[in-house]
Design a protein around this nucleic acid. Structure first.
Lengths: 133, 133
DNA sequence: CGTATACTTGCATTATGACGCAAGTACGAA
DNA sequence: TTCGTACTTGCGTCATAATGCAAGTATACG
């Protein structure tokens, strides 16, 4: 494939060979965690409540089985959305507010960077690095 | 269920009855669109390329069938991530940079609002409205 | 008109994931 | 050590969705 280094890619195919902040920030893992309605409902309840809550407490928010809630919360924690702290037999989950908002803002920045790159690039920008993954 | 109006919810269950900006901004539809690796790859290529591209062009970015790419792009357009413009037999897709970054920032704001609410609330805040959906 | 191009749609296959139930684990209390 | 609480895990079922191929539609071009 033609390597493009110091020019903006002129086609999507060329763009595929370029790495930009958006490549790291556009993480399907995070979005997969937020793509299920039940999970999002649980997350919203936790977020609005504001304090760490147990699995049982969160399970009262909706009609699904406790085991389902347990799995959803564990998945959200895996994705970096929640933080889990075990205390005896109870587990306290709380929202990683800063983590989430920072990741979202970083992605927003990365997306806007793609627009601004055109101007910067033509003025002698940072170039397009080869894709390494 | 106990309705909580002018206090911060003290449990996730109470929180479920409260509506906040996060309820509207945490839209599973958007995240579902961004949860598939192939779709994210196509989106990144389009974003980095910067100009509107055709289905065929985008399809050169990865090894999946053209029909698959066609479906992915249509889905991303449905989710508000891409904009589609038909011109003769070709369809030009381009990234809605502003739309996406604004939605992400709005969600980041809504998440942080959940943290700040505690202080505002105890000083006589806006209250907790009943859930209407 | 016929043909090529650009994309979409139907359909079957396969993979992934959500869910509930039941059983299991871990911990605390009596 | 026995029981109850809090959660996790195994497993079967069902629904959703990703994919490729083939056929279909729409448009341009000669």
């Amino acid at each position: 494939m033609t390597q493009v280094r110091n020019r903006r890619p002129t086609s999507p195919k060329q763009a595929a060979a370029c790495c930009r902040p958006i490549d790291d920030r556009l993480d399907p893992g995070l979005f997969k965690a937020l793509s299920d309605p039940t999970r999002v409902l649980l997350l919203a309840c936790l977020a609005k409540c504001g304090r760490p809550s147990t699995v049982s407490e969160v399970a009262e928010c909706c009609a699904v089985d406790l085991s389902v809630v347990s799995r959803h919360l564990a998945l959200l924690a895996d994705a970096g959305v929640l933080d889990a702290r075990k205390e005896g037999r109870t587990v306290w989950y709380h929202v990683r507010y800063e983590e989430i908002s920072q990741r979202l803002r970083a992605l927003a920045d990365a997306i806007e960077e793609c627009v601004q790159t055109r101007a910067r690039r033509s003025a002698g920008g940072t170039g397009c690095c080869p894709k390494t993954r």
